[in-house]
């Protein structure tokens, strides 16, 4: 059985994304779909007040533990209007950052795949929140965002519609966009 999968020659654009490697990985995973199962991890320790520090290191994927040669730390806190010390961004701002980074990486990858040279990509995000939810003042108000608005300002050697299509395709393939727009089961254990 021969299923022909054609890989186009990667075009002249260079956005620093190795699309050939990603396409080869996709082909390899067609043969071994179980290797596509990944587990992402983080640990988080309380420092003081609303200030905490997460450490991010190993993950599991391609059928094995994947170790990095360093770990990353991400801190979070709350601002002074919440009577906190403002040592770091709030967790919800980190969520916005995660969404923006995921979509931006996607834009670069899709542009590379489509042979579009990017000159600059800037995403600006704003999210609405009614804090009556988190303060427990009104059960009908959700804790999380009411809506998120993202504006992309992209300079690239492409038409306006081609640039819009990059952003749309990036959303379609984005993990964080999916995590935010669709429900996910969360299981918590203690001690």
């Amino acid at each position: 059985m021969t299923m022909t999968t054609t890989i186009s020659p990667v075009a002249k654009a260079d956005n620093g994304v190795n699309v050939s490697a990603l396409l080869s990985a996709r082909q390899a995973l067609e043969q071994a779909p179980q290797a596509a199962q990944f587990k992402w991890r983080a640990s988080c320790a309380w420092l003081n007040g609303t200030h905490s520090r997460s450490v991010i290191g190993n993950f599991f994927g391609l059928g094995a533990e994947q170790s990095r040669n360093k770990t990353f730390t991400v801190e979070a806190d709350h601002p002074q209007v919440f009577a906190s010390e403002d040592n770091a961004p709030t967790p919800v701002e980190l969520v916005l950052s995660g969404l923006a980074s995921c979509l931006t990486a996607g834009v670069a990858a899709v542009a590379q795949r489509r042979g579009i040279q990017l000159h600059s990509v800037k995403a600006t995000l704003e999210a609405d929140m009614d804090i009556q939810g988190i303060l427990g003042m009104d059960d009908e108000v959700r804790n999380g965002f009411g809506a998120i608005r993202i504006h992309f300002d992209i300079q690239a050697n492409a038409t306006e519609d081609e640039i819009k299509a990059l952003v749309a395709q990036s959303q379609k393939r984005s993990a964080v966009f999916d995590i935010i727009t669709n429900p996910t089961s969360v299981f918590v254990t203690v001690n």
């Binding site: 519609d161 819009k164 749309a168 379609k172 966009f177 999916d178 935010i180 727009t181 669709n182």
Partner: peptide
Amino acid sequence: GRLVGLNDGKAHFSGSLANFCALADL
């Protein structure tokens, strides 16, 4: 948006409607 859950007599939908419409228009 896309149907993503059915429980407790409620249907839940994705927040991705705007993007699917943008993709189709493009």
